[in-house]
Design a protein around this nucleic acid. Sequence first.
DNA 1: CATGAATGAGTATTCATTCAT
DNA 2: AATGAATGAATACTCATTCAT
Lengths: 194, 194, 194, 194
Amino acid sequence: MPRTAEQNEQIRAVTRAAILDSAMRLFAEKGYATTTTRNIATEAGLSVGLMYHYFSNKESLLQAVFDTVMARIDEAITAVLQNNPPGERLALLLHTIFDLLAGEPEFWALFYMLRTQPAIMAVLGDDFRQRTASLRGCFIEELELAGQTAPELEAYYLYSVIEGAIQQYLLDPTNYPLADIVEKMISQFGGKQT
Amino acid sequence: MPRTAEQNEQIRAVTRAAILDSAMRLFAEKGYATTTTRNIATEAGLSVGLMYHYFSNKESLLQAVFDTVMARIDEAITAVLQNNPPGERLALLLHTIFDLLAGEPEFWALFYMLRTQPAIMAVLGDDFRQRTASLRGCFIEELELAGQTAPELEAYYLYSVIEGAIQQYLLDPTNYPLADIVEKMISQFGGKQT
Amino acid sequence: MPRTAEQNEQIRAVTRAAILDSAMRLFAEKGYATTTTRNIATEAGLSVGLMYHYFSNKESLLQAVFDTVMARIDEAITAVLQNNPPGERLALLLHTIFDLLAGEPEFWALFYMLRTQPAIMAVLGDDFRQRTASLRGCFIEELELAGQTAPELEAYYLYSVIEGAIQQYLLDPTNYPLADIVEKMISQFGGKQT
Amino acid sequence: MPRTAEQNEQIRAVTRAAILDSAMRLFAEKGYATTTTRNIATEAGLSVGLMYHYFSNKESLLQAVFDTVMARIDEAITAVLQNNPPGERLALLLHTIFDLLAGEPEFWALFYMLRTQPAIMAVLGDDFRQRTASLRGCFIEELELAGQTAPELEAYYLYSVIEGAIQQYLLDPTNYPLADIVEKMISQFGGKQT
DNA sequence: CATGAATGAGTATTCATTCAT
DNA sequence: AATGAATGAATACTCATTCAT
């Protein structure tokens, strides 16, 4: 007896996730250009042909990986924003971001790998800038509530510290004093301590 | 009659520079993996074979590009350190770095492109970390003189701000308030105003 | 529906044989170094890429060709040794070898072409020496039974005559008196006449 | 002051010999195809360009190497033939050939390397066959004098033993009982002992 | 006579992608 | 849905040969 439509749907979802997962891991580990489609299929435990049933391109696979990464970050941030009152959100946001960093560094490594590739930014650049602006918007709001006099500039500055901290951590995870840096950020930008 | 050794030296220096220049520009513009050796040779106005007369392979060309970039940074920094008294160097260092950024952004884009590629970091990683540590060393010294209580931590923090600012600027050069950010950095870390 | 494992096996066997066959013919005809991988693929009627699906590189293809050639010889020799009583084998062995020579001279031409190439002997040398020793072992045994007083030396001598005869024949197949030479070898080394 | 014509002649002869020597050594060591023209020039201690003043081609260099090798053999053989009475020459010829083999095995290795390359034989084949016939002619004469009943066939046979012995020796110089084999050849073909 | 910079066609190999089953 | 055989354009790199000096 053939599979039901529902079962097929189920299978598709699982397989798709497996491919995405392999791709994400391999891109982060070896880079986009040096990862072959065959690599990804093998790692995901399926045939090359089947992979092309799910993603028409290596590039569309990249796009999907990017979307997944971004969705993950958005989700975490949105959760903080929705479940906490303005004025308390800044410290929580920072902790969320850096917990993600400590927990899944490859994830952010991938993020920056994508972001610094000209070939990739040609495709994803606008998306990147838009999301950055939106997150900075949150910061502005919070910084205003915290009583900062020049919240826009402060937001740019804060964003820079965050970004720089992530990169420095990725460059040398064992020595970078991540926790101290985060505390310092919080105290500087006036969020309530947690 | 063969060319004199001097003439050859001259020719070699010019050609080598042309190759390096093309490679640097193309790597920055298209990424390392997507730049072909033929690309580089054509752009430099010479044959593939000749390129291999000067650099034994693509990787060693990358290494040479990296060294050139680094030498350029080192040179600028060293000039500041040697020609100014301790205690006044911090602000000057920052201005130097960000002048370089504003003047030749592709240069730094290349720097970060290289740094976020796992395949490339496998080759250049140690070099990167060493240079980072050395520059942070300068910061520590200056921060101590500026009377900071925890100069090590401050240095890590400062370094992060710098790095983040560079990246944010590269992402959106027209909107990022680079000058203001630099001023803020200087005032925060206690170097004398300029 | 994917092909069954059996179907794939079938396909692989056929394609592999086609590649090996082309390679063998071309190596014999033009030499190893002057035969290109593209040559082989074209001659076998398939794409370059596919050839690499079957053999990981040109060298491993060479190795496979060598193994095939050797298996062919071994097979013929083993058949003689197993189906005939000691004491009668020598003449049969010689006839077997020289029938192979007359029937497929390119086959032996290939054999010697490989053997005299330093670059190739670096890869296949040990194998060559080992097989030579093993065949000489058979000769010793037979020569002992034929009542030769110094079977070891005789075996070396016999082996030399065989090898020399093959090469002389290859150099000038129309004029070399192969049959007479073989008869002379048999009468000299005391195998029963056939 | 410019060199005299004589000095130039002198220089040319020396340089030419150096090139030939390097080529011969390298061809024997690495094979024709894997030896580069640059290899040869470097080994001979001169520039690539200069080498092309002496030999217009890699192929013409090969031809010259071959001629040199052949001239050397011819010379040795002719010396024996001219300075000894018919009837005593056979054993001397054999000793001459095998002394050459023991003294300069690479020399013969080169000879066979060239001879088994189809690409090379296309150029040198006729030459090879002619020289072989001429040497066999000497053998026939000597064998007739030694009273052999079928001197033509014997000559073919002898030639085969010689050729086989050389090759076997080259394959495994340490173990092959060259001296014994030579003695056996001499006693078989009836030349006077030496 | 002498040099080595310069050329570019040619080679082995890889890899995204397609397709018959 | 699933397989893996098949394609061929593209890539890094080599090397015989030329040529300005």
